[in-house]
Simulated assay, not measured.
Amino acid sequence: MTGGDSLFEAFSITTNLVIFAVLASAIWMSGARLSYLVDAIAEQTKVARAFMGLIFLATITELPEMVTSITAVSAGNGELAINNMFGGIMMQLAVLAIAEIFIIKGTLSSAPRNPSVLVSGLLIIPSLALLLLISYTGDMPIAMHIGLGSILIALLYIFFMYLLWNIQDRNTWSPVDLPNEHIEHGEVRSNDYDNLSLRILILFSVIAGLVILLCGVFIVNVAETLADQTGLGSSFIGVSLLALTTSLPELSTAIAAVRVKAYTMAISNIFGSNLIMIFLLLPVDAFFLKGPILNHIDLSASVALIGGIFLTAIYCIGLLIRPKMKFLGMNIDSFLVLFFYMVGLFILYQVR
């Protein structure tokens, strides 16, 4: 742990929790505004919301994970960085389940019509499976201290983005039942940002992204200090408290997207965020000077990887069979994701 060097060490647990809450609130509000802004940009530019969610929105909302992970490895805490990233993958999938509670009519998994949304989810599974394999076989440095595994994962991400770009307009697969088709075409909208100019929308998006970025710089230091003060350790803090907080942009943007009925963008944002999270292993590895970062995957991180594969598979199955059975305000696939996420947290607490 590097919590002893943190500037928050002199504060009490209560004070640090308050600071943590303030930073989390700033991330939440910025993320919510960002979703409205990106939806308005998509409306004006006529860019597909699936692409906007997969690339643009996902990249910006991943800023906290990028900053916190790089900050952690720069201080020599590889375990916190790895567990934050892999725990974030699980948390962001649970985010979709929470966002679906705000849907009055219809379900998230019945909204997408383009196969790229489903494909982006399916591409997450082999990426996480490869990481799980590397955790057992070990990684080897090939470029100074950067591991072969991190480079392979980054190349895989680039190939996946090329693949998704090329299938954006293909109609090789489409569902028969399209209950939310009129919504996805923008005929039913309630976004107050539609009246702003494109230049203003982009400017406000940059400002929201900077707020998320700056808050992410400080929140990792608070989390490390809390890990020391509470005695929970960096592994459990990484996969729970820190992952939860750095996933707030995804949660707030997903809920905001649901409110303006941009359901496809909400799903694409989460799947895109998880793909980018995996790609970020390369820059994180570059900042980690103690050898390949993937050699620091501990039991908690391995459990998080398995959980990420399992939860992603549930949503992909939901996108295929498009169930309509709701439970506690959620579609059955979202309910199962949230339920097994809680089971995963319990297991992670036991193995911390």
Rank of each mutant, 00 (worst) to 15 (best):
A50T: 10
G121P: 04
G76M: 07
A227L: 05
I98M: 14
F86H: 00
I207M: 11
A208I: 08
S69A: 13
H185I: 15
G238K: 05
G307R: 02
I202T: 13
E43G: 09
I101W: 06
N180R: 09
F204P: 00
L93W: 01
W28M: 12
M91N: 11
R199A: 14
V38T: 14
F160T: 10
D333T: 15
K326F: 06
K324H: 11
N77Q: 05
G209M: 09
T253D: 11
F287N: 08
I27W: 00
H296R: 11
I219W: 03
S205A: 15
H182R: 08
L178C: 02
L7G: 00
S268Q: 07
I125A: 06
T312V: 11
A254R: 05
A10Y: 04
M85S: 11
G76P: 01
P126N: 08
R113D: 06
A257S: 15
I153Y: 03
M52K: 03
K46V: 02
A111S: 15
Y193K: 11
S30K: 07
I134A: 10
C316R: 01
M277C: 04
T68R: 04
L7V: 12
Q350A: 15
F310P: 00
I202D: 01
L214Y: 12
T230P: 02
I41S: 03
S197V: 01
L214D: 00
L96P: 00
S190C: 03
G318Q: 05
S35I: 07
S273H: 07
Y136D: 03
M265Y: 04
F20A: 07
A99L: 08
T137S: 11
D298F: 03
R352I: 07
A81E: 02
A304G: 05
L130H: 08
S273M: 08
M52Q: 05
G233V: 09
